[in-house]
């Protein structure tokens, strides 16, 4: 009786975002802010902005937006300006058994046609040579040991679906017409879940800079990311 009383007493102290209204555990998504520490990523010296800071601000803005809706929980791979190897980021996401991972980056390119948001996933052409010949509709059995570098193989199709949703929705607020691209990004190789990398704008582009750094700018693209994730996870945007 005393134990039950203590449990009932502590129940309200549990983070509200871990439980849905029905009490079921909410899906977990992982937001990875690229770079950090001595690795600043791309830099716009004139604007005094680095990719590591822009990515962390964007990840935190997204976390806030997602948590407000209480439809899922969010894990940030880093919450401060720390150096974190890519394998450690993937390990954190894999251990937490995230439903998906979005790695947030920005570009830096002075050519005008390089502005906008771009979404990348690990396509079949960039899988390790040993597995690219196999079918990508592979087994996801937790019983089988998967080599670290092949963790993404069973999720290639899902990652492509997520990438297509994100790219289609992000093109509107970023006024771009980019298509999804496959790229041999190291972090994506290690993720045992659908995983994509998003370049949220180009630090060399003034309009993209505003979208990244102002509250008003962020309010343009956070709904696009949210609705893509909701559609991917729940089959609807709200």
């Amino acid at each position: 009786m005393r134990i039950l009383f203590v449990v009932l007493l502590l129940l309200p102290c549990l983070p509200a975002d871990l439980r849905s209204q029905s009490g079921a555990r909410l899906p977990l998504i992982v937001l990875d802010a690229g770079h950090g520490g001595t690795d600043s990523g791309a830099r716009n010296a004139e604007a005094g902005l680095t990719e590591k800071d822009a990515a962390l601000s964007a990840a935190q803005a997204l976390e806030k937006a997602f948590l407000q809706d209480r439809r899922l929980t969010v894990l940030l791979t880093r919450t401060g300006d720390i150096e974190m190897p890519l394998h450690a980021r993937a390990e954190k996401a894999n251990r937490a058994r995230g439903q998906l991972l979005i790695s947030i980056h920005t570009g830096f390119d002075t050519r005008a046609d390089r502005a906008g948001a771009r979404v990348y996933f690990l396509g079949p052409a960039h899988l390790p040579a040993a597995v690219s010949a196999k079918t990508v509709t592979g087994v996801k059995s937790p019983a089988s040991l998967v080599p670290w570098a092949e963790a993404q193989v069973p999720f290639v199709n899902e990652s492509n679906d997520l990438a297509l949703l994100l790219q289609a929705r992000l093109n509107t607020p970023f006024l771009s017409i980019h298509s999804v691209q496959s790229s041999p990004l190291l972090l994506l190789h290690f993720c045992a879940m659908p995983a994509v990398l998003v370049e949220l704008g180009n630090l060399a582009d003034p309009a993209d800079l505003t979208r990244l750094t102002s509250e008003e700018g962020r309010s343009q693209w956070t709904p696009a990311v949210k609705s893509s994730v909701y559609e991917y996870l729940f089959g609807n945007t709200r």
């Binding site: 996933f121 079949p124 052409a125 960039h126 990508v136 199709n157 298509s179 999804v180 496959s182």
Partner: peptide, 12 residues
């Protein structure tokens, strides 16, 4: 053509 091109859909 089999290399680093944009990918819209994947083979089933």
């Amino acid at each position: 053509p089999a290399g680093n091109i944009r990918v819209e859909t994947l083979p089933p």
